[in-house]
């Protein structure tokens, strides 16, 4: 077998060019170009709930309903507060009358008297949309009517939603519902119209005890980010893999 020097060089050159061709289909992007493609993710809205501060006044629920035009007397709400009362016999009594729109004023739970000396611990847990990093509700939307903004908030396109209800069933946290007036899926928006103007969300502003706070996870100086980084926090239903972005301080294992 003869393999001349000339033939070796020609074959090598052909091989090199052939291998380089598909690579030339790729293009090196400048950081600015890459950002334009991926989107400006310079902000990531997150929420921090301190359950050790909540007293169950429900002013957040009232403010949310009025700010976001959720019908006040309809049994739906974007945010709500749950009460957990643990008694000596190990039982957990849970309620949230009207989503705590009018607060908790009655010591009875589901018409059941609970003597004060029987209570070992009791606490209130505010809940709202977790604005998940991997939102199940967005994955299931068949028409592209719900989506995640680049700063991490999940919104619903009221003009595009067909009202199929898949998202309402997909959400592990039960935060979605049908808007009784618009007849489309409805959910907490972190008060997108307020936070985008530099205001606090209605529930954060209304909370007299700073049990609710909001921050930007991309900003290391943000006090909320500092707490999430440095203190002991938890999220709800971590096992679903949706990466919820509402963080809780003092979350009890009984909270579902």
């Amino acid at each position: 077998m003869s393999f001349s020097r000339r033939k070796f060089l020609v074959t090598s050159l052909k091989g090199a060019i052939g291998a380089a061709l598909p690579i030339s289909a790729f293009r090196l992007l400048s950081p600015a170009e890459a950002r334009a493609v991926v989107g400006d993710a310079s902000r990531r809205w997150v929420f921090l709930v301190d359950t050790t501060k909540c007293v169950g006044c429900g002013l957040c629920v009232k403010a949310c309903k009025k700010e976001n035009e959720v019908p006040y007397d309809a049994p739906v709400t974007r945010t709500w507060v749950e009460r957990y009362v643990v008694t000596r016999d190990g039982q957990t009594h849970i309620d949230s009358p009207n989503g705590a729109r009018d607060g908790f004023t009655d010591p009875r739970i589901d018409d059941q008297e609970i003597p004060a000396e029987e209570i070992t611990k009791a606490f209130f847990v505010p809940k709202l949309c977790n604005q998940c990093e991997n939102p199940a509700c967005v994955q299931v939307c068949p028409v592209g009517a719900t989506f995640q903004t680049r700063d991490g908030v999940v919104l619903v396109d009221r003009n595009w939603c067909i009202g199929c209800g898949y998202c309402i069933m997909a959400c592990p946290y039960g935060v979605r519902f049908f808007h009784p007036v618009y007849k489309v899926a409805e959910k907490c928006t972190f008060c997108y119209h307020r936070i985008s103007k530099g205001l606090e969300s209605a529930c954060v502003q209304a909370c007299p005890f700073e049990a609710r706070r909001m921050g930007d996870l991309r900003n290391m100086e943000d006090p909320v980010t500092q707490i999430i980084m440095n203190e002991r926090i938890a999220v709800l239903k971590d096992e679903y893999g949706t990466k919820p972005q509402v963080f809780y301080i003092g979350l009890d294992a009984r909270v579902r």
């Binding site: 007293v55 607060g103 908790f104 606490f123 005890f209």
Partner: peptide, 16 residues
């Protein structure tokens, strides 16, 4: 007013 000031005797809760 009762939203906050209705007495709920809860130990370890700021409401109490």
């Amino acid at each position: 007013c009762l939203r906050c000031h209705s007495k709920l005797d809860y130990p370890n809760s700021p409401r109490g």
